[in-house]
């Protein structure tokens, strides 16, 4: 059903080979969201008011995966999509999102997505969103994902947000509110090159008692690319939070990391670690002394760092 190009993209961003034979999914192709299916426990519906989908995951749903990749293979295609996810109590599910753009022309193609998540009590969600773009340099490829999430009592959200490569401009905006005993692990990996620009703003509010937050951000900036990280964590209750922000800077790239931890409660324990640096020469020497060339060693270090 998918073209070879679409298959290539969907494999990269969602690890899929084609349209699934069963289960819950929604594949959006150049603005067409009709390729959609629900399962017994995961209901996927188109929205009447706005472009996008409403997803309802029934309470107690376990070990199910929902695939919602977005594919753009036209030049000049711009879209803003609203998705809403209701994750039922005591469920444990995975959502594989992601967007792949192949822009064959000179007009920009852009995907902006607003994802709202509501995780009910004791639910568990793993959410993976990978971005990839390709095509001639003239046609810009732009992604602006916004994630708004509330995690109710005892819920856990694991977010993996990855920019593989080829994205000219991105602004990620992630906002999370944690209630009592709720937990979020936000892993971000980003690669920029050439004249690409990337900005990531993460804001986690730990409102509930015993809520925990871990933000791990790893990035590699090459060429003339620019990256900006604004990672914020606020503790309003007895809570624990840890931000690790690591960047490898290369060539003429620029990286700015702005750390912010705010405590509004005496038992809020918040840590921020940020490091920016080039690849350490002893790492290169070590790998070369095992027989790798300088280029192979560099590729190995970067692949590990962004894995």
């Amino acid at each position: 059903m998918l073209s070879n190009l679409e298959k290539e993209l969907i494999k990269l961003i969602a690890g899929m080979d084609d349209v699934p034979k069963g289960g819950a999914f929604s594949i959006r192709r150049d603005g067409d969201g009709s390729l959609r299916s629900s399962s017994a426990n995961i209901i996927v519906e188109g929205r009447e008011d706005k472009r996008g989908i409403n997803v309802k995951i029934k309470p107690g749903t376990k070990n199910e995966t929902l695939y919602i990749p977005v594919l753009i293979t036209k030049e000049g295609h711009n879209e803003l999509v609203y998705n809403h996810f209701e994750i039922g109590e005591d469920s444990d599910v995975t959502i594989i999102a992601g967007c792949g753009i192949h822009n064959p022309g000179t007009e920009k193609s852009q995907h902006d997505g607003i994802h709202e998540f509501h995780l009910q009590k004791n639910s568990k969600l793993k959410y993976v969103e990978k971005h990839f773009a390709q095509g001639p340099a003239e046609g810009k490829k732009i992604f602006n994902p916004k994630t708004i999430m509330t995690v109710e009592e005892g819920g856990t959200a694991e977010l993996e947000l990855v920019q593989i490569k080829g994205v000219d401009k991105t602004k990620r905006d992630t906002q999370v509110i944690l209630k009592d005993g709720a937990k979020v692990i936000n892993v971000e990996r980003m690669l920029t090159d050439y004249d690409q620009e990337a900005e990531s703003v993460i804001d986690v509010e730990m409102r509930g008692k015993d809520s925990t937050c871990q933000i791990i951000s790893r990035s590699v900036a090459r060429g003339n690319s620019r990256q900006y990280f604004d990672l914020n964590m606020s503790g309003y209750n007895e809570c624990r939070g840890h931000i690790q922000c690591d960047s490898i800077i290369m060539d003429s790239a620029q990286v700015v990391a702005v750390p912010k931890v705010s405590a509004f409660h005496v038992d809020a324990q918040l840590i921020h670690e940020a490091a920016i640096g080039k690849i350490a020469s002893d790492q290169l020497i070590k790998l070369k002394s095992l027989g790798l060339t300088e280029e192979e060693a560099e590729a190995k270090i970067l692949a590990g760092f962004l894995k």
């Binding site: 790893r218 350490a280 790492q283 070369k288 002394s289 027989g291 790798l292 190995k300 270090i301 590990g304």
Partner: peptide, 27 residues
Amino acid sequence: DITERAKMGIGYAFQTPPRFKGVKVQD
């Protein structure tokens, strides 16, 4: 250079080995 010598069968264990974020022992 280092790579050529490594390929010729010379090895060197660092006094202070470097760490690699993300690279596993098996890798």
